[in-house]
Measured scan of single mutants.
Amino acid sequence: YFQGQLNAMAHQIQEMFPQVPYHLVLQDLQLTRSVEITTDNILEGRI
Rank of each mutant, 00 (worst) to 15 (best):
Y1C: 15
Y1E: 15
Y1D: 15
Y1G: 15
Y1L: 11
F2C: 14
F2P: 15
G4Q: 13
G4C: 15
G4D: 15
G4Y: 09
Q5K: 08
L6P: 03
L6D: 03
N7M: 14
A8P: 03
A8L: 11
A8F: 10
A8T: 09
A8Y: 10
A8V: 09
M9P: 01
M9N: 04
A10T: 04
A10E: 01
A10V: 10
H11M: 13
H11T: 10
H11R: 12
H11Y: 09
H11E: 09
Q12P: 01
Q12K: 12
I13K: 00
I13T: 01
I13M: 04
I13H: 00
Q14N: 12
Q14D: 02
M16G: 05
M16E: 06
F17Y: 08
P18S: 04
Q19I: 05
V20F: 11
V20M: 08
V20C: 12
V20R: 00
P21E: 12
Y22K: 13
H23Y: 14
H23E: 15
L24C: 14
V25C: 08
V25N: 00
V25M: 04
L26N: 01
L26W: 10
L26T: 03
L26A: 04
L26V: 10
L26Q: 04
Q27F: 09
D28S: 04
D28K: 00
D28Y: 05
D28T: 02
D28G: 01
D28L: 05
D28A: 04
L29V: 05
L29G: 02
L29Q: 00
Q30E: 13
L31S: 09
L31R: 11
L31M: 11
L31P: 00
T32G: 01
T32P: 01
R33I: 08
S34D: 07
S34P: 01
S34V: 03
S34H: 03
V35H: 04
E36G: 07
E36H: 09
E36N: 08
I37D: 08
T38M: 03
T38A: 01
T39A: 09
T39W: 08
T39E: 04
T39K: 12
N41Y: 03
N41C: 13
I42Q: 01
I42R: 01
I42D: 01
I42W: 04
L43D: 02
L43Y: 06
L43A: 07
E44L: 12
G45A: 04
G45V: 04
G45C: 08
R46P: 01
I47G: 03
